[in-house]
């Protein structure tokens, strides 16, 4: 019944991306383990030098797939990958805490998860008394643009009242947010930190699509937080994501519809609208319901 969403990926745009397999420090043995990416089963292990190696499980020759180790993760690609992954310069700053906060399977498409990550309006209702609280429900006007050099989607000037924005928060604050989409299935947010008003915490969601309607969601953080333990940071992040998961799994359809007439946007959805158009312009067909030619005439 779900055969059409479990089949292998034929979308060249997605095949040629780097995808996050898992955190590097979770590959600990030379015995092969497996993980699924875009409907393909991959095997991975440490080689004799202690470096990670990844191959298609079905490949009798175990020809290594291209890999990249970046932002604490091992990235791989089933097609022809670009030379480099998108840049997160904060990762290299010496006083940053770089933490991977866990991997959670979610029965939803990657772009639905990205769109949820871009959304401030749900904070008071889904992350009640943590990232938002009634009556502070308003999403005030913010700006959206596409970076002409990197082609990243940006949402800037985002502001939202948060009762407990981070592990380091002791009271409510107006949080400033920047959102950035540098990859069809990866999204980064930059937000005010209580500890340094001139710099921002970095929180990213790296999705590994296992099928069109299923992901393994990796959470990466680069924080200005000298005090909290990794465990406390992970617990906070996993609590947040645990609140999102049941919402995401109750979205219908699970694939993100790119036709503008599929759902009803409000002004708070400005960045989501830009993201959907951007996916359309990139020609992404995996994990989405593309605009059908018959409805294209009414979407402009």
């Amino acid at each position: 019944m779900t055969a059409n969403v479990a089949t292998t990926c034929t979308d060249p745009v997605i095949l040629d991306q780097w995808h996050p397999l898992l955190p590097l420090d979770e590959i600990t043995t030379d015995q092969p383990n497996t993980a699924v990416l875009l409907g393909e089963q991959l095997s991975y292990r440490l080689d004799a030098n202690g470096d990670p190696v990844v191959w298609l499980t079905a490949d009798a020759d175990a020809t290594p797939l291209p890999i990249l180790v970046e932002y604490l993760y091992v990235w791989t690609c089933l097609g022809s990958p670009p030379d480099r992954l998108f840049a997160i310069p904060e990762f290299s700053e010496p006083d940053r805490r770089n933490v991977h906060a866990g991997t959670i399977g979610v029965h939803v498409s990657a772009p639905r998860a990205v769109e949820n990550f871009l959304d401030m309006g749900h904070f008071p209702f889904v992350h009640t008394d943590v990232l938002g609280a009634e009556p502070h429900t308003e999403v005030v006007e913010y700006d959206v643009h596409i970076d002409p050099d990197t082609n990243d989607v940006w949402a800037t000037e985002c502001v939202f009242y948060q009762p407990r924005a981070a592990t380091t928060s002791t009271e409510g604050q107006m949080s400033d947010y920047l959102y950035r989409v540098p990859h069809p299935f990866c999204v980064i947010l930059y937000k005010t930190t209580p500890l340094d008003k001139d710099r921002m915490d970095v929180i990213a969601l790296f999705c590994r699509p296992t099928a069109q309607d299923r992901i393994e969601a990796h959470m990466f953080l680069s924080l200005l937080d000298p005090d909290n333990t990794d465990a406390a940071i992970r617990k906070f992040q996993q609590t947040i994501f645990g609140q999102d998961k049941p919402i995401l799994e109750n979205q219908h359809p699970k694939l993100l519809p790119l036709d503008s007439r599929a759902e009803t946007p409000i002004r708070a959805d400005k960045v989501a609208i830009a993201y959907r158009r951007w996916l359309s312009d990139l020609g992404v067909t995996y994990g989405v319901i593309p605009v059908s030619p018959t409805s294209a005439s009414v979407t402009s």
């Binding site: 749900h122 008071p124 889904v126 308003e138 999403v139 919402i247 409000i266």
Partner: peptide, 21 residues
């Protein structure tokens, strides 16, 4: 559950969108 939109009994018309007072 997601954004607190309210829909009215009978008509199913949306009566309140908390993000945009």
């Amino acid at each position: 559950r997601y954004h607190g939109w309210r829909y009215s009994n009978r008509s199913a018309g949306c009566t309140y969108i908390p993000a945009h007072p």
